[in-house]
Design a binder for these strands. Sequence first.
DNA 1: TGAAATATGTCAACGACACTGACTTATCTC
DNA 2: GAGATAAGTCAGTGTCGTTGACATATTTCA
Lengths: 203, 203
Amino acid sequence: MSTTLTYLGRGIGHGIGHGMGSADDVTRPGPSPVPASPRGAEAARPPCSSDDLIELLFFAYRDFVGDPDRILAEYGFGRAHHRVLHFVDRYPGLTIAELLDILRITKQSLNRVLKDLIGQGYVAQQPGTSDRRQRLLFCTGRGAELAADLTRVQARRLARALTSPGDAATPEGFLMAMIEPDERAAVRRLMDRRGQGHGQGAA
Amino acid sequence: MSTTLTYLGRGIGHGIGHGMGSADDVTRPGPSPVPASPRGAEAARPPCSSDDLIELLFFAYRDFVGDPDRILAEYGFGRAHHRVLHFVDRYPGLTIAELLDILRITKQSLNRVLKDLIGQGYVAQQPGTSDRRQRLLFCTGRGAELAADLTRVQARRLARALTSPGDAATPEGFLMAMIEPDERAAVRRLMDRRGQGHGQGAA
DNA sequence: TGAAATATGTCAACGACACTGACTTATCTC
DNA sequence: GAGATAAGTCAGTGTCGTTGACATATTTCA
């Protein structure tokens, strides 16, 4: 999700393996219907497929991370800073190694953002007590404040989606409720287009 | 999530506005308990807070996009290619403008990956019928195949999580089930650390 | 005690994927 | 024919991930 199925760049090789078919047939194999509705949840209206959920997850996640993004931008921070701040705030005394294990990034990447957060007084370090090689991480008051702000907007969206009327019980209802209200109509319009002759409508 | 709260880089200003407190107090304000368990879902065991869900969403999303990442790497593609391929596959005849609106990226960014996909025969273009300025996008057979492969792994994880025994009914149960099985224990161990004196344990 | 392992930090280079700004080319609309 | 619109492109930049190599404390162990 623009976030888009989100993405976070990944190391990527460079082999175009698996190529096997010709390349000019502009057709759709028609298969891939993927066993629709995995569970017995096909009670109500539209039988929501796994495919639909994947897509809704894309849109929901996009808006979910969009909230904090706006706040972070005011501070000159990015998502990487958010992640670090979040975990340090929630688990005070976290070591570098633990943080690396949680985030699954290299220490070079971590250090870049951690340096910003420490340099600007959002995070503080403290040598480990039993092992002085370690650097235990803590949020300063200012850091905890920012972390709380970021958590607040995400928790709000989550809470609204969980308490939304009616269909919050189904996965698709929950995900739709996570999407920014103004954009739900557009998403519904898009998804309704499935199967029908390509309507190539509006913009 | 490596993938992280996912990821997508964002344009960022550069003002450190809002600074207001001193910066050396290594304390935690203790507040931010955020109204735990929003809904009446506090039936069973641990009263899962919004904060916990935010964190679980991080881990779940990380693993959710990790599956396709591995496949994409074999083709020399990244997440940006995945997103384009996914939407073109699902909505054949999509125009550039529509795709830009869905992905929320600039046309320069879109063009970079679209050029790869078209050049390697995964996507084909076709001038619009009513408006020949448009370029309608379609997957080739090869493109549809790759899209199906990518959807398959994500749908599988989703289906497993939705049909997982017991707690798949609660949001936290569902999210935990979305996490790679091997890593659930580590996540539980981490989250159990909340509140308790910082255990700074293992790695 | 001294060698090896561990925890952290850092320099340098690079890749993926966003962004802005400016400009071109078709094509459609009025 | 003028102006708007759909798309493509060149050039530069920024965030955040990567690899590889190396430096520095500190702990552990033979």
